[in-house]
């Protein structure tokens, strides 16, 4: 029994007619981790696992953001609490930074594997079909993962500049996410951008949240039916939740509350 894949025959120079030439090299002696991540099946695992982490974040993030509807204080205290967790067990923001770096790594891996899979697949079909393809099963979501992903990425960069660093937000005040956010989403263009990005994300998740089960080999006749419903539910939740912010803020249901007054977490006295 082979323990390494057979090297392809006739690798040298290609005769006009002949067997396929490899589109990538084998490195049978590489350390297991490398071998695993070099494999596109392995990459899909990474992608799925990081995908799940990202999903986790997005849900948590949504829940957190919903505090916006409670009150300025609530959400600002929430932001504060995040920085403060886990109370006195750790120095301030240590845990937050740990989580942030985890999140960051997940993004990087997710994007890198997405990128390298895309490259492999380009090589796998050098000559495109010359007649129109008629897809039966592949849906819009599955065929646009890369683009929806990239949109989300672009959005994310802006999003961080806008709300985390404030570089894209003239009225940004540290520690006052409430006003930062409301101000930001009062700008129609930004509101639209948020809308678009979150629709893209929803599409991404519509396929992703189903696809990850396949990638991780979670396949069982009993639950297979549920995988699609889960994906729809999840994508729908994120869509509705995240879209509510730009919409309600545009509709002035949620409005600025005495900006630039310290402390941001105290009840607002001024009118």
């Amino acid at each position: 029994m082979a323990t390494t894949a057979t090297p392809p025959t006739k690798t040298a120079q290609a005769p006009p007619v002949g067997p396929a030439r490899p589109i990538r090299k084998l490195v049978p002696n590489a350390p297991p981790i490398v071998r695993f991540y070099r494999s596109s099946v392995g990459k899909k695992w990474v992608m799925a696992v990081t995908g799940v982490m990202l999903m986790g974040f997005v849900v948590a993030h949504l829940i957190g953001n919903l505090k916006l509807y409670l009150s300025k204080e609530e959400i600002n205290l929430y932001g504060e609490a995040l920085r403060d967790m886990p109370g006195h067990l750790l120095p301030r923001t240590v845990l937050l930074w740990t989580l942030r770096s985890g999140l960051f790594v997940a993004f990087v891996l997710h994007i890198h594997s997405a990128y390298s899979l895309t490259m492999t697949n380009r090589k796998a079909r050098p000559h495109q079909y010359q007649s129109k393809r008629d897809y039966v099963a592949a849906d819009f979501a599955s065929r646009t993962m890369r683009w929806t992903g990239i949109i989300v990425l672009a959005y994310l960069v802006f999003h961080l500049m806008d709300l985390t660093w404030g570089t894209a937000n003239s009225q940004w005040v540290r520690g006052d996410p409430y006003n930062n956010l409301v101000y930001s989403l009062q700008r129609p263009v930004v509101a639209i951008a948020y809308g678009v990005a979150n629709i893209a994300l929803a599409f991404h998740l519509y396929h992703g949240a189903w696809s990850m089960f396949q990638s991780m080999g979670i396949n069982n006749p009993r639950i297979n039916k549920l995988r699609r419903s889960f994906a729809i539910g999840f994508a729908g939740l994120i869509l509705v939740g995240n879209l509510s912010f730009p919409i309600l803020i545009q509709a002035h249901v949620v409005d600025l509350k005495c900006p630039h007054t310290e402390p941001t977490t105290a009840p607002c006295k001024a009118v």
């Binding site: 490899p22 589109i23 049978p28 071998r35 899909k44 697949n121 796998a124 599955s142 396949q214 990638s215």
Partner: peptide, 15 residues
């Protein structure tokens, strides 16, 4: 691994 020396990767299109 042999499959991947010749072919693309699956993103679960189901085609």
């Amino acid at each position: 691994e042999t499959m991947e020396t010749y072919f693309g990767s699956c993103t679960n299109h189901r085609e």
